[in-house]
Write a protein that binds this DNA or RNA. Sequence first.
DNA 1: GTTCTTGCAAAATATTTGCAAGACG
DNA 2: CGTCTTGCAAATATTTTGCAAGAAC
Lengths: 133, 133
Amino acid sequence: MNFEKKLNSRNIKPTNMRLLVLQQLVESEAALSLTDLEGKFHRADKATLYRTLKTFEEKKLIHSIEGKGSVKYALCEEGCECAPQDQHVHFNCEKCAETFCFTQTKVPSLKIPNGFKAKSANMVYHGICANCS
Amino acid sequence: MNFEKKLNSRNIKPTNMRLLVLQQLVESEAALSLTDLEGKFHRADKATLYRTLKTFEEKKLIHSIEGKGSVKYALCEEGCECAPQDQHVHFNCEKCAETFCFTQTKVPSLKIPNGFKAKSANMVYHGICANCS
DNA sequence: GTTCTTGCAAAATATTTGCAAGACG
DNA sequence: CGTCTTGCAAATATTTTGCAAGAAC
């Protein structure tokens, strides 16, 4: 994968820092929290990483997953607009605390009460993951 | 509703503090964060409220909702065991930041990859609520 | 008196912002 | 130069624990 092209495709200027962060996200099996990400680098500023993640999220290169503890981030799929219908389900393991994307399992479309307008959805299962059981 | 009976039914000793917290949860339209709850009282210790919420959650009197910002809590329905199939969907408004329970809309049962064991689910829509649109 | 609960203090963790220096066009 | 990005510092918010006094049985 060409990281630079990937950033450009989402209108993100490909700086050095951003390329490195993207690389970490690509290489990671599980979703990463800000602290996780910080730990991947020998020496990195948390505020910069924070803003990098925010930029990535805003440009829909990554999506955030709200679960136990801190928010985690993972790469979006090609063409994802983060609307409820193109989001997938996540799994958070209560033993190892890892968060996984079930990209095969889309968030189902549900009818919600009148007047409510859903822009995105966050669906996370909690339990024991395949590695820990 | 008899608050004392409700606590007893979940094996929670009905202290004064707990009765007051339960009352707030019952009276509240939306789910409450720890800080929200603290704000409902003139003078209350956050640690006590925190532990009260934890106790309530553990005994399945309330359920936690992980969304933007802090975790929020709302009453469980009668007989709820907080397993994926008896949980409902939530809605978090990005304008007023309130979190609502859609008790009519259950979390759908999905097939998840082999080896993963789901004990609970957290499904939250983000968008604009009926009051704010 | 033993166990559970509460209040106060403070630690630990997570998220966010201000500001000035640096990079880039 | 003008704009965007980064690093350092620090504020803010949130979650969690220790410990001793108090309440309940």
